[in-house]
């Protein structure tokens, strides 16, 4: 049990850290968007599942309410990423020169 918990916590913390490293290191806004939406969400999800397991085994009765935050994060992370990307396109945020394609519907129709 303790092994599973430890593994989940370490994986979660690792992915959270990777997400933030991506946020700090990647070159432009649109690439930075990828770190937090995927890595951080999964990292926090893993930590929350570890917490649910921990409290289910330590106390009487199962504790599942952590799943609620996990579910909420998995639903909201893509929505906020979508909105931020839309705002960035609207403001014409600087992007990498070597980015292929343009954030536009007309130019891109092949």
């Amino acid at each position: 049990m303790e092994w599973i918990l430890s593994a989940l916590i370490l994986i979660g913390a690792g992915f959270t850290l990777v997400g933030s490293i991506g946020l700090a290191k990647l070159p432009d806004f649109f690439t930075r968007l990828h770190g937090p939406t995927k890595a951080t969400t999964l990292g926090v999800g893993a930590i929350l599942i570890a917490s649910a397991l921990y409290f289910s085994t330590r106390q009487e009765g199962i504790s599942l309410h952590e799943l609620l935050i996990t579910l909420f994060l998995f639903i909201t992370a893509p929505v906020s990423a979508h909105l931020m990307a839309k705002a960035a396109i609207h403001l014409k945020t600087r992007m990498l020169k070597r980015t292929q394609g343009t954030p536009d519907f007309k130019n891109n129709q092949n």
């Binding site: 979660g12 959270t16 705002a87």
Partner: peptide, 22 residues
Amino acid sequence: SKPDRILALDTLYINTIALLIL
């Protein structure tokens, strides 16, 4: 840029959730 700051704030609050749970 401004979207960068929003993204950073978004990440910061998700990290806070992780910290609180830990």
